[in-house]
Design a protein around this nucleic acid. Sequence first.
DNA 1: GATGAATGAGTCTTCATTCAT
DNA 2: CATGAATGAAGACTCATTCAT
Lengths: 216, 216, 216, 216
Amino acid sequence: MEKRRLTSRGQERKRQLMAFAARRFAENGYHPTSVAEIVSGLGVGKGVFYWYFSSKEELFLEILRDAQHDLRRRQDDAIGEEPDPVRRIELGLRASMAWFAEHRDLVNLFQFAAAEERFAPALRRGQEVAVADATRHVKEAIAEGRIRDGDADATRHVKEAIAEGRIRDGDPELLTHALLGVSTYLAARFIHERGENPDEVAEAAVAFCLHGLLGR
Amino acid sequence: MEKRRLTSRGQERKRQLMAFAARRFAENGYHPTSVAEIVSGLGVGKGVFYWYFSSKEELFLEILRDAQHDLRRRQDDAIGEEPDPVRRIELGLRASMAWFAEHRDLVNLFQFAAAEERFAPALRRGQEVAVADATRHVKEAIAEGRIRDGDADATRHVKEAIAEGRIRDGDPELLTHALLGVSTYLAARFIHERGENPDEVAEAAVAFCLHGLLGR
Amino acid sequence: MEKRRLTSRGQERKRQLMAFAARRFAENGYHPTSVAEIVSGLGVGKGVFYWYFSSKEELFLEILRDAQHDLRRRQDDAIGEEPDPVRRIELGLRASMAWFAEHRDLVNLFQFAAAEERFAPALRRGQEVAVADATRHVKEAIAEGRIRDGDADATRHVKEAIAEGRIRDGDPELLTHALLGVSTYLAARFIHERGENPDEVAEAAVAFCLHGLLGR
Amino acid sequence: MEKRRLTSRGQERKRQLMAFAARRFAENGYHPTSVAEIVSGLGVGKGVFYWYFSSKEELFLEILRDAQHDLRRRQDDAIGEEPDPVRRIELGLRASMAWFAEHRDLVNLFQFAAAEERFAPALRRGQEVAVADATRHVKEAIAEGRIRDGDADATRHVKEAIAEGRIRDGDPELLTHALLGVSTYLAARFIHERGENPDEVAEAAVAFCLHGLLGR
DNA sequence: GATGAATGAGTCTTCATTCAT
DNA sequence: CATGAATGAAGACTCATTCAT
């Protein structure tokens, strides 16, 4: 689809379509939500839809792109010029959870995209930048000796594993994904499902991510 | 659907259908996989499907139930009679990740179910028991003073939060879900997507969950 | 289907199948009622059905035949040796309505058969004998001068029609069918639908059939 | 189904679908006639059907409604401002039979609807108005002493019944239904099945309804 | 006689997409 | 830009019937 030059009214229409579709996709699922439902929800004809999007799939992809872009901006804004890498990680985590709290629908869409072969690559592509950014902070923290190298305080079991080289403790990318797992999971379970206070949950997530179960 | 009395041949057929469907659902998605595809994949007539399942949805639910049951059994077996609650948590975590490693399809199905309003409740219901079990171990560990109560080693920010009561550090159920988030996420990203060694990833997950980013 | 020689147990089974099917056909319709529903309602396997009937259609036809035969027997019994043809008509009418009252399901089946091209011929064939019998009584009554020849008491309009030969007043077969129409219709509306007293309705039907709206 | 705003072309399509379907339903039965058959009979795609009707059932119901409405209009037109209630009844009867003669298909549909639990309520609801109208004329005629009160000219049997209060002779609504029974039945048997002259049959029906078998 | 299993054509319905106006 | 109309392949599901055991 050649990029259309849209009037401001056109841009508004497109925004409406994406917002409405995102909600329906999240509530009802991507497949079960029909184009007919989307356009009739906005009280417009089918032609409108295909004026702005070449297909339902493209609509989804565009929602995904926008959401990922928005999340990244939120993280960047939160981190600002903070010099301490650990603090940067913490700020990023909090910013992410705040965004998750506000965009339940989009989080659900991420989850759907991850589960569907057809959309998973796009999701991953979009996350790569964000993950790379976060990984940079983790690496820096490791370099500064702020993050454990897997040596101290380990259980016997873990120590053996490190000794035998079976462990990848300290792998920056893996740590980044662990952060992602904790934050998305806790947001979904506690903020979205149970409606708990986002700040509280964020605090708990930060604490867990920094000190784990055992703390020191 | 009234429970059918199945001959052993019938049970075998049912198993076949569930296994094949699980694979297709995971590879291709639930909605994009048609009943026609499932039966023709097994080389049987369409009626066979509806002899064993009252609907495609019911088939999915049954796969889900079975999978959750199997995972729980694996966890229980791994934990055995271990007296140390922290060790029990670790064993459960490892068992889960091993199961995740072996059942990529089913993990994907869990993810899909979580994203789809229609299946999420069933997924949650099935997880409740497992979560309750794990939470028991966490509680015991807290009682024994093995798990931090959020007091020591916290960043200034976190300490303030605790002081102001804005934080729920130490909430056993939340910690359980954090474990779940880390394990499912790392399994999906590193074991399934990148084909890394499940044991290594499990070790890293354990280390992260016990000590967090900062270790001590 | 070659006539099977049935054991007494077999005859009982067949009766059960026919009775159950008749009820379901009447309540739910012929097409919407499946063979599976019939056999499972009796707690038997599908083989049983096809042991006694070569097809669902044949089952329906057999129910129809039996019902018509039973109705005719009831009429014959009621009329007995009564010499007065008008009285015979009246007795037949009452007997029919009593039977209708008792066999709501079968009346409904007659109605369905009449509406369905596929079964209408069988229905008509079965009714022919009964209609012929009734018509005989009507003819006799006309011959005896007991039934009007369309001359007297007619409205001006009707008189003209008779004069111009446009009217078939006194056509015995038509009169018979008029009786049928009144009795089946009143039974359905008042006895079955509204649960009114069959005797009362029968009396009213007789009165209407003998004297019409205007009486004398 | 939300009411669609139809263009004149759309209205024409809908009319076509209803007319064609009515014919096939009548000839072949409601259940045996598939949506596929209907649309292919008009040479259009399957989607067209569901653009105009939300289901096959709704199509049937709409045909039914239209037919009942048309019949009622015909009756009303025929009766006009006629002051004599008996004459009004006669005119209504004739109008009905003329309509029946012209709309064999729709009469068959009425019959089918009456036999099928699923459609019977809709049929009844539609008939209520017509029956109420006719009943009004009958009541008026009784009030004017034009219709017998069940006293005179009865057989001994009937007289006893009246005396004992077992009879409802003169019940206006019952009489109305008797008229309906006669007219629909004679139309189906003589006009549709045997192709006889509608006027002749109507005359006979009128004669029977006014004077019954015995005349005066 | 009877059962569970299987068949597969056929049913109603949906839906992404296209197009004339 | 926008609409109502149309397409037709595809989907979930049904069901009369058959058959091996």
